[in-house]
Design a protein around this nucleic acid. Sequence first.
RNA 1: GCCCCAGUAGCUCAGCGGAUAGAGCAGCUGCCUUCUAAGCAGCUGGCCCCAGGUUCGAUUCCUGGCUGGGGCGCCA
Length: 565
Amino acid sequence: MAKPGWSCNSVQMTDALLRDAIAKALKRAQRQGELPAFDIPEIPVERPKQAEMGDWATPVCMQLARLARMAPIKIAEAMVKRLPELSFISRVQVAPPGFVNFALDEGWLCRQVETILAEGERFGLADVGQGQRMQVEYVSANPTGPLHMGSARNAVLGDALANVLSNAGYRVQREYYVNDAGSRMRAFQETLLARYRQALGHEAQVPEDGYHGPYMVELGAELAQRCGTSLLEMPADQALLEIGRLGVAQVVDGARSDLAAMGIVYDLWFSEQTLYDQGQFEAIMSILRQGGHLDLHDGAVWFKATALGGEKDEVVVRSDGTPGYFASDIAYHYNKFSERGFDRVIDVWGADHQGHVPRMRYMMQALGLDPRRLGIILYQLVTLKRGGEVVRLSKRTGDMITLREVLDEVGADAMRYFLLSRSADSQMEFDIDLAKEQSDENPVYYIQYAHARICSILRHAGDAPHKDGDVMLLTHPAEQGLIRQMLRLPEVVRLAAEQLAPHHLTYYAYDLAAAFHAFYRDCRVVSSEAEEQDLTLARLKLVDAARLVLRRTLRIMGMSAPEVM
RNA sequence: GCCCCAGUAGCUCAGCGGAUAGAGCAGCUGCCUUCUAAGCAGCUGGCCCCAGGUUCGAUUCCUGGCUGGGGCGCCA
């Protein structure tokens, strides 16, 4: 049984109840000999394209035609005759070539306004996760400089997904993996030490594979100011570690504040270095060694992925004795699953990491973990444009656009909506100039404007006692259309959670706003006519519920719900 | 060469094997004396990349092409 906090409301169960009813009706028809014997399949229920067709439809009779050796229409008629009474359905129709269409009952729809208000902030919860513990790890950019725009899509996807999952019945932890170990870190330390020395007037050379952007010059100067010459007096190795520690702390603080400006706050910032400091890397190596998954040749330690079906083996420890990126990730994921006990883990990576996916799956297998517990969202890279020209993104040459820079220009809400509104599988173009210029025409304002309009109506109505409103008066097509859209939220949350695809929310939010704007056009809410006072109260109640649903939707996307625009 | 993702309206993109394929932007036409015109209504715009296959039914699934992006490091 689901926990009370995640219990299904009546709203989202209509399709499930419908499936049951259809299966029951088919069985009855079989028992009474009107349909031949066959196994009842999973009943598909979908939303018809045309509004006149109703709210739900099933094409199941077409699928059954072959099994039953009957015309789909005949099957449909036999099924419909035996359909149990359903309180939320008022009309059932058979349509060629064999669809059965269902329309929701008007009165039932009206009553859902009460249901939504009663559920309050819990409206929209779906029960996919059943309380499972899930971790979402996202962004996790190397702490070698400010976050650039390449990480923005990662941030938006990961954060919205975490929101979706926690609304879908998972207990979610948000985590940022700080890559403060490894060869890139070494290059960072060397670059920073050189810039620090230069700031103090000493000769120093930034290494070839170091970070050549102006950011490191600033950071070096800042640390020179803060630490004086103290680091010059240390042995080189010690100075590198020390300046690296200070530099990473600074960079991580920057990332934390940039992400916070987008409304993203993590539960944990996990340091890669701790995997080595606390012996977890050693432990995992011995587990793999005992499992016979390691091999030693060419001076390096290899993970035998080919033994598990992989195309090639993978280096874990390089011939110079230093562990690679994969080594850390093995220890890190072992830590996630076995030590911290997450039921499922989602990693959000750019498509340039796709080669890393298969070896992570083999690693799970080697550790005796079900690979399905690790979900990897690979998103296609964003092409950044400015003034119609493609902007190159490279942290090492320093030719880059920071996340903060774009965030300050377009705002957190527009940034989130833009980057969220496409499926992770699709490449997308982000034209900075366009995002700025178009900001007034941006769909994000269309959606937020609906919320602001609602708030304006409620302000205008003052303290009218709309708690007493009679929802059964909400029979206008625009009212019913708005209620229908409001009821979709739990369904959309469930879909987004199952597919790990938060972009569905952006389309839903737009549809919901459109339904409200249409209602606003057709239905005057606050009336001064005495005989319309009851309708006014009923509509205020509807509007109040619409505000709740719109606010919930915006919040799940990580966007604000302004009361005034 | 092999692997991953995409190809749908002028542009950017939705579309859970089903009915007459959608939205935003761009273009054109109307609508503000009462709750916000950042809104509403309408028009224009499509060999769903191509060729086969599976299916009662394919934009959706499979195979093979073509085009674009990404990967195939003892980088991450």
